[in-house]
């Protein structure tokens, strides 16, 4: 939560933006690395290695966006779990349906 309630009329507070710009650079560098991997690693041999790296990097980016930009890191524990726990079940659905997809038309 903000500290705006403590601000007094006419008083200018210094911007606290260091952390925000840091996250911006992290997101930018991660995306750049994704490009390097996408065209640097041979798809024929490392297909699943690449996919796993991309998924991990996506989750890292999501952590920074949700944690810092959306400020979920600073919220109370019950709110954090309200958001994270239901989202985790999505991973289950993802794995289940990707596996099932491989059998469509072959059974």
């Amino acid at each position: 939560m903000g500290n705006h309630s403590t601000t007094h009329e006419g008083e200018k507070l210094k911007p606290q933006t260091k952390e925000l710009w840091k996250v911006f650079w992290i997101l930018l560098v991660l995306t750049a690395i994704e490009f390097v991997i996408a065209f640097g690693l041979d798809t024929d041999r490392f297909k699943w290695t690449k996919i796993i790296i991309f998924i991990i990097m996506t989750i890292v980016k999501a952590y920074f966006i949700v944690g810092t930009f959306m400020h979920l890191k600073g919220e109370v524990k019950s709110l954090i779990w309200t958001i994270i726990l239901p989202s985790l079940f999505v991973v289950w659905l993802l794995v289940a349906l990707i596996v099932e997809g491989g059998y469509i038309g072959s059974v």
Binding site: P15, Q16, V23, F24, L28
Partner: peptide, 16 residues
């Protein structure tokens, strides 16, 4: 990503 940063900077400015 850039517009996301400018948005969070607007939020920060709102706090001040």
């Amino acid at each position: 990503i850039f517009s996301s940063v400018t948005m969070v900077l607007a939020v920060e400015a709102g706090h001040r």
